[in-house]
Simulated scan of single mutants.
Amino acid sequence: MSAFNGMIIGSLVGIIGTGMGGAATYFLKNPSNRFFSGIMGTAAGLMLSIVAFDLLPHAFDIAGLTLGTIGILMGAILISFFDMIIENMDIAGSFIKEGVLLGIAIALHNFPEGLAVGSGFMVSQSLGIDIALVIALHDFPEGLAMATPFSAGGIPPYKNVIYTVLAGIPTGIGALIGVVTGGISPYFIGLNLGIAGGAMLYVTCGDVIPEARNIYKGKISILGMILGFIGGIIITKYL
């Protein structure tokens, strides 16, 4: 797989996923917390399933348990560093400012997801497709979460689409790096998969699941996670 194709696929994954979330503001003028909770729970279950049953097993098979585990720690530490920066920002203020900060957070999170796509395609087309599909589904609620405060602040839907598409572009950059470094050595592929897996675990367990539970206290997020987890197993087995 060429580096150019890897970048294109990664870019499309991020752009389509977050862009669809932005486009949803044409139809969802005021999405309920229950809706957000359910769709975020489903996305979390999908991500956990793919990471546990597809992404990390490939990392360990290619690079070994030690290097794969080092990659997981590197990915988690990298995202935790960016999370600390974002948390230290003053998010009090207008809806527009909240949307901008969410956009920054989503863009940072999209980079390791792109890395997973690019590295996955270097292993096999099926793994790359599995990861790309799950990330596209995961990016939809992120794009919607980013666009909602923009809508509340008076930003029209077409601009929401533009802003969410921009937040998805780092996925393409991550995919390019995943393909390029994966071509250097198989160990780089395994390490990249471990880094992407660690980053995705951090985002899922540290951000997506707690947020899904916080915004709505009912059981919808738990049911969504279970369905998403089962869906991830099906995707892993048949795609």
Rank of each mutant, 00 (worst) to 15 (best):
M1C: 04
F4H: 07
M7D: 00
I16Y: 00
I16A: 02
G17F: 09
G17N: 10
G21K: 05
G22I: 11
T25N: 06
N30G: 00
S32H: 07
S32M: 10
R34V: 12
G38M: 10
M40A: 10
M40R: 08
M40Y: 05
T42F: 15
T42A: 14
A44S: 15
M47S: 04
P57S: 03
F60M: 07
I62Y: 01
T69D: 03
G71M: 07
I72E: 03
L73E: 00
M74W: 00
D83T: 13
I91R: 13
I96R: 10
K97M: 06
E98A: 12
G99T: 01
V100N: 06
L102Y: 03
A105D: 09
E113T: 05
G114H: 08
A116L: 10
S126E: 15
I129Y: 13
D130W: 00
L133G: 01
D139T: 04
D139N: 15
P141K: 05
P141L: 05
G143C: 04
P149I: 08
K159A: 14
N160C: 14
V165H: 00
G168Q: 11
G172D: 06
A175E: 11
G183E: 13
S185W: 08
P186V: 09
Y187V: 03
I189V: 15
G190E: 07
G197T: 08
A199T: 03
A199L: 11
L201R: 10
Y202D: 08
D207R: 11
N214E: 14
I215G: 01
I220M: 12
L223Q: 03
L227G: 05
F229S: 09
I230N: 06
I230Q: 02
Y238S: 12
